[in-house]
């Protein structure tokens, strides 16, 4: 069965840890890191495998640091 699978890449050095993306994700895929980047901000990380590549997080990200990928994959 074909399934839509997504992935996000966060530019962690440019993320300001505002958490706006967390509120925008329909599948609670994003949380803040425990570590901080060189500016001292916690950054967005993916915390589950539910991402569909809907791009909601990337749309609302004020700093435009999220890149989104999406593909149809055949489930094993």
């Amino acid at each position: 069965m074909a399934k839509i699978k997504g992935d996000i890449v966060v530019n962690i050095e440019r993320c300001k840890g505002c958490e706006v993306c967390i509120a925008a994700c329909p599948f609670t895929c994003i949380a803040m890191s425990e570590e901080v980047n060189s500016k001292g901000y916690h950054f967005a990380i993916k915390v589950n495998d539910e991402c569909t590549g809907c791009s909601n997080c990337a749309l609302v990200c004020p700093d435009g640091v999220i890149t989104v990928y999406r593909a149809k994959v055949t489930a094993e």
Binding site: G6, G53, L59, V65
Partner: peptide, 11 residues
Amino acid sequence: LRKPEHLVYKT
């Protein structure tokens, strides 16, 4: 998935 052909959003 992180390939140009699967890209759906970038700044």
